[in-house]
Write a protein that binds this DNA or RNA. Structure first.
Lengths: 136, 136
DNA sequence: CTATGTAAAGATAATGATTCTCTTTTAGAA
DNA sequence: TTCTAAAAGAGAATCATTATCTTTACATAG
């Protein structure tokens, strides 16, 4: 489904600003910060307002088009990939990488299907994995 | 091990301000924010500076006496419980609760002992579990 | 017990990301 | 084409956090 459809579906107007923010997210596909996105967007759209970018990001998160990823450095990051996945956090560089593993998901899922948490209904889970990236 | 020892061990001076911040963390044991901590501390110590509290929190995190808890929403939170554990995040109230489960830890640990992530050395992991708290 | 060097606290300004307010513009339905 | 609500723009405001600079006090040694 393309972005035009997605906006329509969520009852949002299609504007050039929204399209370019979405483009930025997918081009800068390593969990960009608002600042990264603003920088990218200004190249194509020098007059866009910073507030507009924040508003677009906010409404996208609200409508489930994007997700926020928070780091322990306290800068908010955004991502457009919405399937269940986990994150690798580098202790040294603070880089974030996606980690996909259906097998592990199934193991955890399966565990929670047997072991219920008292007074809590699980909707979703993600694993934060801390460590360091090594050269291969 | 008490807090006096812990500070000594890390080469930190024992000051009333540090002791009261530590007390706040353990009294407000539900992942307090800096603001929560400042409020608590000011009761006993009206003249303490906000900057001091932040500095104490920072150095405690740096020395491994406290940990930061990252959430998708709002501000940074702190916790004094350092054993491996996970967090339950309430989608509705944004409450955070600790979740301990050695069995699940072992399952995940075991998985990672067999399945290595390419170019990444795992140091630790935590599970973020999203959902809603229900009355029992 | 006292002196002393240095780490820490205090006060407050600065920062910087994000949000708010208000005005103008525009997407898209009628 | 017109119209209206939604969105964009501009810039001030906010607010958590950090930085700077001065003063205080912990803790070691004499």
């Amino acid at each position: 489904m393309n972005i035009h459809h997605k906006l329509k579906e969520k009852g949002l107007k299609i504007t050039p600003q929204r399209l370019v923010v979405m483009e930025a997210i997918f081009q800068l596909n390593n969990h960009p910060s608002a600042e990264n996105i603003i920088e990218y967007v200004k190249e194509k759209f020098p007059n866009i307002s910073v507030a507009t970018v924040y508003k677009v990001l906010d409404i996208f998160v609200e409508k489930g088009i994007l997700k926020k990823v928070k780091t322990d450095k306290d800068v908010m990051r955004y991502e457009g990939y919405l399937e269940r996945h986990h994150h690798l956090f580098c202790d040294e560089t603070h880089q974030i990488k996606d980690f996909h593993n259906k097998e592990l998901d199934a193991i955890i899922q399966n565990y929670f299907s047997k072991y219920k948490i008292k007074d809590f209904e699980i909707k979703d889970f993600q694993l934060n994995i801390n460590g360091v990236f090594k050269a291969s």
